[in-house]
């Protein structure tokens, strides 16, 4: 299925957010996630289904002012 990850189109086989993060290489990363502009807490990732065309944001700690 095709979804958008951090603004880039990706093909994934995972169907949940949790398995998608593993597939995309973020299994152990300290990140926060949002699907279609809605925050999905880490505790809810396993139950968060992904669908064709979903927009996934994966955010990490960065410098800030």
């Amino acid at each position: 299925m095709k979804i958008t990850v951090n603004g880039e189109l990706k093909h994934i086989s995972a169907t949940t957010l949790q398995t998608a993060l593993v597939e995309l290489g973020y299994a152990d990363a300290r990140v926060a996630t949002a699907v279609n502009e809605t925050f999905v807490p880490s505790s809810a990732r396993a139950g968060q289904a992904l669908a064709e065309g979903d927009r996934l944001e994966i955010l990490a700690p960065m410098q800030g002012g």
Binding site: P61, M62, Q63, G65
Partner: peptide, 21 residues
């Protein structure tokens, strides 16, 4: 220290920054 969230590039920059902070 003020910090932010930005898209994770997959290069581990977020993790190393977090450790430093």
């Amino acid at each position: 220290a003020t910090v932010s969230l930005r898209r994770e590039g997959g290069d581990g920059a977020g993790a190393s920054f977090w450790q430093m902070i």
